[in-house]
Design a protein around this nucleic acid. Structure first.
Lengths: 227, 227
DNA sequence: ATCCAAACTATACGCCGTGCAGTAAAAATA
DNA sequence: TATTTTTACTGCACGGCGTATAGTTTGGAT
């Protein structure tokens, strides 16, 4: 009856992740140590090696979990608005991205920063990130009919992108030109920039109202898309 | 003759920094360890405590050094163009920011990321960062006559900013409205976003031409300033 | 020549990831 | 049911880390 075994295994694995996330929430990504997790579980650090081959493996799993949490929230915020409200959906995505990041700064650092000393991200990207990018392309695609007139049509080619990305995009949006994918990456970068600076405390010494700066930036983004 | 003492002291201090930077260049910010530095110098780790009270103090010094290096390069790139070429100066700043960041990814992570496990940045900002921001305000100020028409004049007040920033700005640009300072922060964020994503490898799984994406974004930035 | 302070070493404590050997219990097999 | 295999886990060890405390050497001043 391997079911019982498998169940216990899954439970232990989940407990490891849960404790790791709890440690991260209080002490930042650096607090994720196999020894601390084991201590909290009443186990030896080596026991964790039965579930994750290395600490980096555990961190990679955590990144995927946290990233998925973020993406689900953003998708929910998007879906709370009607599909034809392209501008509103982008704004909702943007504002929720910032709100989540400030509420979970440790998660942000885990996902977008150096999660843990010496951590090497996996060669293939994080799955949740691909999901987020695909969603972002969807948002831009909905706005593309208007944005197309405002954006420069530089020399962007499909060969500029990862083949996997190209397949995904063309499956969902057959008529979308490569310039739209470039635009969605730019939108991503635009949201990321100010939020990253804020999370890492670089705006703190400049402005007392980082939220107003971000809102202004996003308003400008929306208007640059033709809304 | 305390001069000799002081000279030796300064030399040792400089050697510590130099070795720390060398270690960082090869192994990333995580490789900056007192023990490794001491090993390289043929000393004990504790000897370093005579020069820097804690490891974080050393890291703070390194951040300032590296940041200054970056700012000097950016200012040089700016000054290579005539003052009336506001758009060109912003573009030069932007492109050199990306070039430097990609050439010194470890430096970028030191400045803008989590430099070292458990590092707490000093309460007062890093001096070089204030310099960079002041320079950015200067660039935006030069473009402001044109940009003013394109930018929304939201409800930005001088009280939204750190008093020190307000003083600096008003000293250099007496007639500049607060909206221009907000704009310069937004410009900073816009440059930071894509570069941070690229340095941390998040664009790698999406596009093969991150430089083209960045250039397109910067072209759009310039045009949004009215050029 | 003597004294002092600065520079440095030695030792130790508690953290970390992880490799290797051993053990107890659960499951599979006979 | 008795035996064997697999799984989960412990114990110990190694080398890494920051850093606190105490002791030692040494250059400069008196």
């Amino acid at each position: 009856m391997p079911n019982r075994r498998a169940r216990l295994r899954a439970e232990t694995s989940a407990e490891i992740k849960a404790i790791a996330l709890k440690l991260m929430a209080t002490g930042g990504p650096d607090a994720i140590s196999l020894r601390a997790i084991a201590r909290e579980m009443g186990m030896t650090a080596n026991a964790i090696y039965g579930y994750y081959a290395t600490r980096d493996d555990l961190v990679t799993t955590l990144i995927n979990d946290v990233y998925s949490d973020l993406v689900e929230r953003l998708e929910a915020a998007r879906d709370a608005l009607p599909p034809d409200d392209a501008a509103g959906r982008i704004l909702a995505w943007a504002e929720n991205f910032r709100t989540w990041s400030l509420a979970n700064p440790e998660g942000f650092r885990l996902i977008y920063g150096d999660p843990v000393p010496g951590y090497q991200p996996p060669e293939e990207g994080v799955e949740a990130e691909l999901r987020a990018c695909a969603a972002l392309v969807g948002l831009v695609a909905a706005a593309w009919p208007r944005a197309v007139e405002r954006q420069s049509h530089g020399d962007h080619e499909w060969t500029d992108f990862d083949p996997h990305v190209v397949d995904t995009v063309r499956a969902d949006h057959p008529d979308l030109p490569p310039a739209a994918v470039v635009l969605s990456l730019r939108v991503w970068g635009r949201m990321h920039g100010l939020v990253a600076l804020e999370v890492y405390g670089h705006l703190r010494t400049q402005t007392r109202e980082p939220g107003k700066v971000y809102s202004a930036e996003m308003a400008d983004l929306i208007s640059s898309l033709g809304f």
